[in-house]
Amino acid sequence: MVAQLIWIVAVYASAVILIHILHHREQTRRVMRSGKRIHYFLITRNHEAVIEGYIRMLAFHAFWTGKLYRVTVLDDESKDETLAVATKLAYSGSAIDIAPLMHFRSVAGEDEYQREIVIDLRMPGSGGSQSRRGEC
């Protein structure tokens, strides 16, 4: 009898959580419809071990907030499989572009994105640097 009550409470609690998540997403979709988009620039050099985690974290954040996003991986002559991992993620449906670091200025400053964030993974101990449009 107690086990059945626990199951009923667990199902009810999960339904409440699901309703709250869907409600939160619907509210944030209104923001998405207004055109707010984020463009992330990941500057990498031999970051095979962490690139997938960063891209998946950015995708989860965009899913949670309901914002459109784009990730551009700017590679600084990696000797490992960093580009292979990013390419596999791009083929699996993630919003990823891949370009050499020398093309950074030509890629930055697109008109369709209202906010651009640069994350430089090459700096040890750095969480990246954020910049707004035109400050890249």
Rank of each mutant, 00 (worst) to 15 (best):
I17E: 12
L18S: 06
I21P: 01
L22Y: 10
H24Y: 01
R25S: 15
E26I: 13
E26M: 14
T28R: 15
T28M: 15
R29M: 11
R30H: 05
V31I: 14
V31E: 04
M32T: 01
G35R: 04
R37Y: 06
I38Q: 01
I38T: 09
H39E: 03
H39F: 08
F41R: 11
F41I: 06
F41Y: 15
F41E: 07
L42H: 12
L42C: 14
I43A: 03
I43M: 04
T44E: 06
T44I: 13
R45H: 11
R45W: 11
R45E: 06
N46F: 01
N46M: 01
H47W: 06
H47E: 11
H47T: 09
E48C: 13
E48P: 10
E48L: 10
E48G: 11
E48F: 14
A49P: 13
I51Y: 09
G53Q: 12
Y54Q: 07
I55N: 00
L58R: 11
L58I: 13
A59D: 15
F60H: 08
F60L: 07
F60Q: 06
H61C: 05
H61W: 03
A62M: 05
F63Y: 12
F63H: 13
G66L: 05
K67C: 11
K67E: 13
L68K: 04
R70M: 13
R70E: 04
V71W: 12
T72W: 01
V73S: 01
D75S: 01
D75M: 03
D76M: 01
D76G: 00
E77P: 00
E77Y: 06
E77F: 05
S78R: 14
K79M: 09
K79I: 08
D80N: 15
E81P: 00
T82F: 06
A84E: 08
A84D: 07
A84N: 07
V85N: 02
V85E: 02
V85P: 03
V85L: 04
A86G: 08
T87Q: 10
K88N: 11
L89N: 05
Y91V: 12
Y91D: 15
S92T: 03
S92H: 01
G93D: 02
G93M: 04
S94T: 01
S94L: 06
A95S: 15
I96P: 13
D97F: 01
D97M: 00
D97C: 01
I98Y: 10
I98P: 03
A99I: 00
P100A: 04
H103K: 11
F104P: 00
R105F: 07
S106F: 05
S106L: 02
A108W: 09
G109T: 12
G109R: 12
E110M: 04
E110T: 02
Y113P: 10
Q114V: 05
E116W: 10
I119A: 08
D120R: 09
L121I: 10
R122P: 00
R122G: 02
R122F: 04
M123F: 06
P124V: 11
P124C: 06
G125F: 02
G125R: 00
S126K: 02
Q130K: 10
S131H: 11
S131Q: 08
R132N: 07
R133D: 08
